[in-house]
Nucleic acid binder design. Sequence first.
DNA 1: TAAAAAATTGTAACCAATACAACAATTATT
DNA 2: AATAATTGTTGTATTGGTTACAATTTTTTA
Lengths: 111, 111
Amino acid sequence: MTYLLKNQRHPTAEMVYSALHPKFPTLSRSTVYQALDLFCEKGAAQKIVMGEGEMRFEADISIHGHFLCRKCSTIFNFFYPGDTELPAAPKDFHVEHRYLYYQGICPSCAT
Amino acid sequence: MTYLLKNQRHPTAEMVYSALHPKFPTLSRSTVYQALDLFCEKGAAQKIVMGEGEMRFEADISIHGHFLCRKCSTIFNFFYPGDTELPAAPKDFHVEHRYLYYQGICPSCAT
DNA sequence: TAAAAAATTGTAACCAATACAACAATTATT
DNA sequence: AATAATTGTTGTATTGGTTACAATTTTTTA
Protein backbone atom coordinates (compact mmCIF):
# COMPACT_ATOMS: atom_id res chain seq x y z
CA MET A 1 0.00 0.00 0.00
CA THR A 2 2.97 2.23 0.36
CA TYR A 3 3.13 2.80 -3.39
CA LEU A 4 0.57 5.48 -3.29
CA LEU A 5 2.75 7.67 -1.16
CA LYS A 6 5.25 7.50 -3.97
CA ASN A 7 2.80 8.49 -6.65
CA GLN A 8 1.55 11.63 -5.07
CA ARG A 9 4.02 14.23 -4.08
CA HIS A 10 3.07 15.75 -0.77
CA PRO A 11 -0.34 14.36 -0.02
CA THR A 12 -2.33 15.02 3.09
CA ALA A 13 -3.76 12.05 4.93
CA GLU A 14 -7.10 12.85 3.38
CA MET A 15 -5.64 12.85 -0.11
CA VAL A 16 -4.13 9.44 0.47
CA TYR A 17 -7.44 8.20 1.71
CA SER A 18 -9.39 9.59 -1.26
CA ALA A 19 -6.94 8.15 -3.74
CA LEU A 20 -6.89 4.74 -2.15
CA HIS A 21 -10.53 4.43 -1.26
CA PRO A 22 -11.85 3.61 -4.76
CA LYS A 23 -9.47 0.68 -4.98
CA PHE A 24 -9.97 -0.53 -1.45
CA PRO A 25 -13.55 0.35 -0.61
CA THR A 26 -13.29 -0.94 2.93
CA LEU A 27 -10.30 1.23 3.76
CA SER A 28 -10.83 3.51 6.67
CA ARG A 29 -9.28 6.81 7.54
CA SER A 30 -7.94 5.35 10.77
CA THR A 31 -5.84 2.90 8.86
CA VAL A 32 -4.43 5.61 6.67
CA TYR A 33 -3.44 7.77 9.63
CA GLN A 34 -1.93 4.87 11.44
CA ALA A 35 -0.05 3.60 8.42
CA LEU A 36 1.34 7.01 7.62
CA ASP A 37 2.51 7.47 11.17
CA LEU A 38 4.11 4.08 11.09
CA PHE A 39 5.98 4.86 7.89
CA CYS A 40 7.29 8.01 9.48
CA GLU A 41 8.43 6.22 12.58
CA LYS A 42 10.21 3.60 10.54
CA GLY A 43 11.87 6.32 8.50
CA ALA A 44 10.22 5.40 5.23
CA ALA A 45 8.42 8.70 4.96
CA GLN A 46 8.36 12.05 6.63
CA LYS A 47 5.76 14.36 7.96
CA ILE A 48 6.02 17.90 6.81
CA VAL A 49 4.18 20.82 8.30
CA MET A 50 3.81 23.72 5.95
CA GLY A 51 2.67 26.85 7.67
CA GLU A 52 -1.05 26.60 8.08
CA GLY A 53 -3.13 23.65 7.11
CA GLU A 54 -2.89 19.96 7.42
CA MET A 55 0.01 17.67 7.78
CA ARG A 56 1.60 16.45 4.61
CA PHE A 57 3.55 13.32 3.96
CA GLU A 58 6.20 12.36 1.49
CA ALA A 59 8.08 9.26 0.65
CA ASP A 60 11.21 11.04 -0.53
CA ILE A 61 13.43 11.08 2.51
CA SER A 62 16.55 12.38 0.79
CA ILE A 63 17.94 15.70 1.93
CA HIS A 64 16.02 18.51 0.37
CA GLY A 65 14.10 21.65 1.17
CA HIS A 66 10.51 22.56 0.53
CA PHE A 67 9.12 25.52 -1.28
CA LEU A 68 5.48 26.42 -0.75
CA CYS A 69 3.85 28.67 -3.32
CA ARG A 70 1.71 31.27 -1.62
CA LYS A 71 -0.66 31.41 -4.57
CA CYS A 72 -1.27 27.88 -5.75
CA SER A 73 -0.23 26.17 -2.50
CA THR A 74 1.85 23.67 -4.39
CA ILE A 75 4.84 22.27 -2.58
CA PHE A 76 8.05 21.88 -4.55
CA ASN A 77 11.14 20.03 -3.50
CA PHE A 78 14.48 21.64 -4.07
CA PHE A 79 17.76 19.94 -3.55
CA TYR A 80 21.00 21.14 -2.14
CA PRO A 81 24.33 19.42 -1.69
CA GLY A 82 23.93 18.46 1.94
CA ASP A 83 23.44 19.57 5.45
CA THR A 84 26.92 21.02 5.57
CA GLU A 85 25.43 23.79 3.45
CA LEU A 86 23.24 24.83 6.34
CA PRO A 87 24.27 27.07 9.22
CA ALA A 88 25.57 25.18 12.20
CA ALA A 89 23.61 25.02 15.40
CA PRO A 90 25.30 26.41 18.50
CA LYS A 91 27.90 24.21 20.13
CA ASP A 92 26.54 21.46 22.39
CA PHE A 93 23.29 21.25 20.53
CA HIS A 94 22.93 17.81 19.12
CA VAL A 95 21.06 18.17 15.85
CA GLU A 96 19.11 15.14 14.72
CA HIS A 97 17.03 16.57 11.96
CA ARG A 98 17.23 19.66 9.80
CA TYR A 99 14.33 21.23 8.10
CA LEU A 100 14.44 23.96 5.48
CA TYR A 101 11.36 25.58 4.13
CA TYR A 102 10.85 28.54 1.84
CA GLN A 103 7.75 30.41 0.92
CA GLY A 104 7.03 32.58 -2.08
CA ILE A 105 5.77 32.48 -5.63
CA CYS A 106 6.45 29.62 -7.97
CA PRO A 107 7.43 30.12 -11.62
CA SER A 108 4.02 29.35 -13.07
CA CYS A 109 2.24 31.72 -10.70
CA ALA A 110 4.77 34.45 -11.37
CA THR A 111 3.48 35.21 -14.85
CA MET B 1 -0.47 44.64 25.27
CA THR B 2 2.27 43.59 22.97
CA TYR B 3 4.81 43.56 25.81
CA LEU B 4 3.91 40.10 26.84
CA LEU B 5 5.00 38.68 23.55
CA LYS B 6 8.41 40.10 24.36
CA ASN B 7 8.62 38.57 27.79
CA GLN B 8 7.88 35.02 26.84
CA ARG B 9 9.98 33.46 24.20
CA HIS B 10 7.88 31.32 21.96
CA PRO B 11 4.48 31.24 23.58
CA THR B 12 1.44 29.54 22.22
CA ALA B 13 -1.76 31.53 22.03
CA GLU B 14 -2.93 29.74 25.12
CA MET B 15 0.21 30.70 27.02
CA VAL B 16 -0.28 34.33 26.14
CA TYR B 17 -3.84 34.10 27.30
CA SER B 18 -2.95 32.44 30.61
CA ALA B 19 -0.24 34.97 31.32
CA LEU B 20 -2.39 37.94 30.48
CA HIS B 21 -5.61 36.79 32.00
CA PRO B 22 -4.76 37.47 35.66
CA LYS B 23 -3.96 41.07 34.84
CA PHE B 24 -6.89 41.59 32.50
CA PRO B 25 -9.64 39.39 33.84
CA THR B 26 -12.03 40.33 31.06
CA LEU B 27 -9.62 39.29 28.32
CA SER B 28 -10.91 36.60 26.03
CA ARG B 29 -9.14 34.02 23.97
CA SER B 30 -10.67 35.46 20.83
CA THR B 31 -8.90 38.73 21.42
CA VAL B 32 -5.60 37.00 21.92
CA TYR B 33 -5.89 35.03 18.72
CA GLN B 34 -6.94 38.06 16.78
CA ALA B 35 -4.24 40.30 18.23
CA LEU B 36 -1.52 37.76 17.56
CA ASP B 37 -2.65 37.37 13.99
CA LEU B 38 -2.69 41.11 13.60
CA PHE B 39 0.85 41.44 14.90
CA CYS B 40 1.98 38.84 12.41
CA GLU B 41 0.27 40.58 9.53
CA LYS B 42 1.82 43.87 10.47
CA GLY B 43 5.19 42.23 10.71
CA ALA B 44 5.67 42.81 14.41
CA ALA B 45 5.73 39.14 15.22
CA GLN B 46 5.86 35.83 13.46
CA LYS B 47 4.05 32.57 13.63
CA ILE B 48 6.19 29.51 13.89
CA VAL B 49 5.05 25.97 13.43
CA MET B 50 7.20 23.42 15.15
CA GLY B 51 6.49 19.91 14.08
CA GLU B 52 3.53 18.75 16.03
CA GLY B 53 1.57 20.84 18.41
CA GLU B 54 0.16 24.28 18.49
CA MET B 55 1.21 27.43 16.77
CA ARG B 56 3.84 29.51 18.49
CA PHE B 57 4.52 33.17 18.27
CA GLU B 58 7.55 35.29 18.78
CA ALA B 59 8.30 38.96 18.74
CA ASP B 60 11.87 38.61 17.51
CA ILE B 61 11.62 39.05 13.78
CA SER B 62 15.33 39.13 13.06
CA ILE B 63 16.79 36.41 10.87
CA HIS B 64 17.38 33.30 12.89
CA GLY B 65 16.65 29.61 13.02
CA HIS B 66 14.84 27.55 15.59
CA PHE B 67 15.99 24.52 17.47
CA LEU B 68 13.42 22.34 19.13
CA CYS B 69 14.62 19.98 21.84
CA ARG B 70 12.99 16.60 21.48
CA LYS B 71 13.17 15.97 25.21
CA CYS B 72 12.18 19.17 26.97
CA SER B 73 10.34 20.72 24.01
CA THR B 74 12.09 24.01 24.55
CA ILE B 75 12.59 26.16 21.50
CA PHE B 76 15.93 27.91 21.14
CA ASN B 77 16.82 30.60 18.69
CA PHE B 78 20.11 30.38 16.90
CA PHE B 79 21.50 33.07 14.71
CA TYR B 80 23.39 32.96 11.47
CA PRO B 81 24.84 35.69 9.32
CA GLY B 82 22.00 35.99 6.85
CA ASP B 83 19.90 34.32 4.24
CA THR B 84 22.84 34.22 1.85
CA GLU B 85 24.07 31.40 4.06
CA LEU B 86 21.15 29.27 3.00
CA PRO B 87 20.91 27.19 -0.15
CA ALA B 88 19.36 29.03 -3.06
CA ALA B 89 15.96 28.06 -4.36
CA PRO B 90 15.78 26.97 -8.00
CA LYS B 91 15.84 29.73 -10.59
CA ASP B 92 12.51 31.49 -11.21
CA PHE B 93 11.26 30.74 -7.74
CA HIS B 94 10.64 33.98 -5.98
CA VAL B 95 11.42 33.41 -2.32
CA GLU B 96 9.66 35.68 0.12
CA HIS B 97 10.36 33.95 3.38
CA ARG B 98 12.93 31.48 4.56
CA TYR B 99 12.48 29.21 7.48
CA LEU B 100 15.10 27.06 9.12
CA TYR B 101 14.31 24.62 11.85
CA TYR B 102 16.38 21.96 13.57
CA GLN B 103 15.42 19.25 15.93
CA GLY B 104 17.48 17.33 18.43
CA ILE B 105 18.72 17.41 21.99
CA CYS B 106 19.63 20.61 23.78
CA PRO B 107 22.73 20.92 25.98
CA SER B 108 20.90 20.60 29.29
CA CYS B 109 19.05 17.47 28.22
CA ALA B 110 22.23 15.93 26.84
CA THR B 111 23.69 15.23 30.24
C1' DT C 1 -8.65 -26.28 13.20
C1' DA C 2 -8.45 -23.62 17.14
C1' DA C 3 -6.18 -20.21 19.74
C1' DA C 4 -3.37 -16.13 19.84
C1' DA C 5 -1.67 -12.10 17.87
C1' DA C 6 -1.94 -8.38 14.83
C1' DA C 7 -4.31 -5.34 11.82
C1' DT C 8 -8.49 -2.79 10.43
C1' DT C 9 -12.68 -0.44 11.07
C1' DG C 10 -15.95 3.06 12.54
C1' DT C 11 -17.48 5.95 15.85
C1' DA C 12 -16.71 9.13 19.45
C1' DA C 13 -13.95 12.41 21.57
C1' DC C 14 -10.36 15.93 21.43
C1' DC C 15 -8.57 20.32 20.83
C1' DA C 16 -6.64 24.28 18.56
C1' DA C 17 -8.44 27.56 15.73
C1' DT C 18 -12.11 30.20 13.41
C1' DA C 19 -16.68 32.40 12.60
C1' DC C 20 -19.91 35.21 14.09
C1' DA C 21 -23.37 37.81 16.35
C1' DA C 22 -23.96 40.64 20.49
C1' DC C 23 -21.99 44.06 23.04
C1' DA C 24 -18.72 47.72 24.62
C1' DA C 25 -15.59 51.39 23.76
C1' DT C 26 -13.59 54.76 20.99
C1' DT C 27 -13.46 58.16 17.41
C1' DA C 28 -15.52 61.21 14.12
C1' DT C 29 -19.18 64.48 12.74
C1' DT C 30 -22.53 68.12 13.32
C1' DA D 1 -21.77 67.86 24.33
C1' DA D 2 -24.68 64.57 21.77
C1' DT D 3 -25.23 61.49 18.22
C1' DA D 4 -23.71 58.62 14.71
C1' DA D 5 -20.24 55.69 12.84
C1' DT D 6 -16.44 53.00 13.38
C1' DT D 7 -13.56 50.02 15.75
C1' DG D 8 -12.44 46.67 19.14
C1' DT D 9 -13.84 42.91 22.42
C1' DT D 10 -16.33 39.09 24.16
C1' DG D 11 -18.21 34.49 24.50
C1' DT D 12 -20.27 30.83 22.43
C1' DA D 13 -20.83 27.64 18.72
C1' DT D 14 -18.71 25.41 15.00
C1' DT D 15 -15.15 23.60 12.21
C1' DG D 16 -11.81 20.30 10.77
C1' DG D 17 -7.84 17.50 11.29
C1' DT D 18 -6.35 14.16 14.32
C1' DT D 19 -6.40 10.69 17.98
C1' DA D 20 -8.43 7.13 21.23
C1' DC D 21 -10.56 3.07 21.64
C1' DA D 22 -13.59 -0.82 21.65
C1' DA D 23 -15.33 -4.08 18.37
C1' DT D 24 -14.48 -6.77 14.56
C1' DT D 25 -11.85 -8.94 11.02
C1' DT D 26 -7.74 -10.91 9.24
C1' DT D 27 -3.44 -13.20 9.67
C1' DT D 28 -0.17 -15.99 12.08
C1' DT D 29 1.24 -19.70 14.98
C1' DA D 30 0.98 -23.98 17.18
